[in-house]
């Protein structure tokens, strides 16, 4: 999946000459946390986050003092070393970027112009879509030896029941000789599949509560 498929458009922006007060209003009204700052050509020249705004907002004990400060331009508080992405970037890379740089938003730039934005919220939403958790289905975990071909063998057993697979995840078990296959299957009655898998010698974790046998 690429960024183009998950980025938000149009982007709410301000220009460097807009006031801090305007930024505060945008953040509050639209419940957003990041405002890219662009110039007349729509080039990203900075970014203002809700944290930057909080830093310059008066304390709640001094709410009516120094209001003139809020009339200063956002160019005085914006961060200018902005990390940007491209519409063709991979979504996984964006996740790594967020983690590595401890940031939570990525303006997306094409031909040097701002075309979209991806936030942590969008990434999380995408992850939910990828796991298939937004469609009705049952969730089955299968513990398999860490060998090639296990996924297709397990999937073949499910296919025999003509049940659609909404998503598959694969993660290592605590014991490195094993892996856990997670299937989200579109049925309310996975008992048949579970019995087939168990009869074929697989360990099915459903549900998987430590200390409780299923």
């Amino acid at each position: 999946m690429i960024v183009e498929q998950i980025m938000k458009t149009p982007v709410i922006t301000l220009q460097p000459t807009n006031t801090i007060a305007e930024a505060i209003q945008l953040v509050r009204q639209l419940r957003i946390r990041h405002i890219p700052i662009v110039d007349a050509e729509n080039h990203v020249v900075g970014i203002v986050t809700d944290r930057d705004i909080r830093d310059v907002s008066p304390s709640i004990f001094r709410i009516h003092e120094h209001l003139e400060d809020l009339q200063k331009p956002v160019s005085m508080i914006m961060k200018t070393d902005v990390i940007v992405g491209h519409p063709l970037d991979f979504v996984e890379e964006v996740a790594a970027l967020f983690y590595e740089h401890k940031i939570s938003c990525l303006p997306i730039v094409k031909d040097r112009k701002l075309v979209g934005i991806v936030t942590e919220t969008d990434l999380l939403y995408t992850l939910i879509q990828l796991t298939g958790a937004h469609q009705p289905g049952s969730h089955i975990e299968i513990k398999v030896p860490n060998e090639s071909g296990m996924l297709s063998k397990a999937a073949a057993i499910i296919a025999k029941r003509h049940i659609n697979i909404a998503s598959v995840l694969l993660y290592p078990d605590q014991d490195e000789n094993y892996k856990i296959l997670v299937f989200r299957v579109q049925t309310m009655n996975p008992i048949g599949i579970i019995n087939d898998l168990r009869n074929a010698g697989y360990t099915v974790l459903w549900p998987n509560l430590p200390g409780v046998s299923s």
């Binding site: 958790a133 469609q135 289905g137 049952s138 969730h139 309310m188």
Partner: peptide, 9 residues
């Protein structure tokens, strides 16, 4: 909980 059980929501 929809952790395992249909429909998951």
């Amino acid at each position: 909980t929809g952790r395992y059980l249909f429909p998951g929501t």
